[in-house]
Design a binder for these strands. Sequence first.
RNA 1: GGUCCCUUCGUCUAUCGGUUAGGACACAUGGUUUUCAUCCAUGAAAGAGGGGUUCGAUUCCCCUAGGGACCGCCA
Length: 464
Amino acid sequence: MSKVATRFAPSPTGALHIGGVRTALFNWLYSKNQKGTFHLRIEDTDKERSKEEHKIQIINSLKWMGIKHDGEEYIQSKMIGEHVKIAKKLLANGDAYKCYCSSEEIEEQKKRAKQKKIPYVYNRKWRNISDDQAPKDIKPVIRFKSKIEGTSIVKDLVQGNVEIENNTIEDFVILRNDETPTYNLSASVDDHNMEMTHIIRGDDHKINTFKQIQIYEALGWDIPQFAHIPLIHTIDGKKLSKRDNSSTLDDYKKIGILPESLRNYLLRLGWSYKDKEIFNLDDSIKLFNLEGIGKSPSKLDMSRILSMNEYYIKNIEENILYKKLKEYCEVYKDKIIEEKENTIKSSLIFLKNKAKTLEDIFNNSKYILNDEVTFDDNDKKLVNDEAKKIIHLFKEKISKLEVFDRENLEQIIKGLIELNNTNFKGIGQPLRIMLTGSKFGPGIYDIILSLGKKEVIRRLGNIR
RNA sequence: GGUCCCUUCGUCUAUCGGUUAGGACACAUGGUUUUCAUCCAUGAAAGAGGGGUUCGAUUCCCCUAGGGACCGCCA
């Protein structure tokens, strides 16, 4: 048995969405699990719609997810010559034929079929007409001579045996009248040339498999194994499309989702291993298999992505988390200035505990990042005269502090609570508002300590 | 319309003929707490429907219903 080789073959006609990313992930994981190789093929033969920007987006998306392909990117458009050659060979061998129907004629047939509500299948008109009867003014397409009788079975590694009546597969076009190959031909030839052993792809390609296998058979090639994974649906059960919100990786990146959480989430979407939920990279590679893939489509659930992200934010090493936060802020928010770096870094331990995303951490850090506190009018009202008096006392007490630590602060606050016959909220809330401009936020001691004595006194100076 | 596929808590799923149908997210309640959270505990929540096969079906088979994919000289 030859070494496992898988591939991901997107077409750069649009941004790669999360469903495609999952397909890539499954292919990559499977190949790594089997100690094989994983390849990237860019199917850019649709010149009209293929865009360089999409290709870049696809490559960057995979890179961000940590999905690395072995070898060079395989650019399909460079191989068109090969595809044409094979089409000609199929023609010469009698496995394909020239069809002289005009596109108008085909359109007409389709329209009629639709009106009569009968299924349209190309009528194989030119399958048995010899070439010398061909009209001179029409450039032919080449169609594959598809099986007419009997049934075909694909042993799908996910779907099981899939059986179909051969006559429902039409004589599909393999070479257009402009001499360019079509998808099923190109994909088959490339997969063969790239020596793919396993084709793991979306369910939407299932019917194509029957066409592609016939090409393999006609050429006497080894047929790879197929695994068709169910598609991802939106939360309301519809097919995920490029127009959907939150469908490209960038949609997740910009709210501060970590690639490892998305990877873990995507892995568990339509695949499972016992009751295990958290899979680090090593686990993923070690445990991934095709048997664990379910047969039914699954829905995208944002709250699960968020919760997975929360887990990774809390469990990832802080240095790494800081690095990620820094990069994130630089791209999507404001750059963290150098003099704030250490404060943020050392505050991460409590900042991250209130966060589901990097964006949350950024928001929680705002009181450190911005020296000027901005107040909400309603919040400001909470700092009444009584509170001002206490804050003033607090300020005086801490200015005299020699050791500015939690223990001493606790003593001071405890004392003030007693002295003023109030509770913790009576002093904690106005303090928090004065220092951060918000009623919510990290613990008050964390805020005070992270800001430092000088800055706390400065901010409390705003009191009037 | 034709072909193919799918169907367990709201969601992702476990179960490979015998379970009080398990876990996770979300949700609810309670506790801890210094606000918001975290954390901990508890709770509610599922085999689409109908037939078979079997001593016994969520599990195997059939039908119905619902959902999805494909039906391009796109990929």
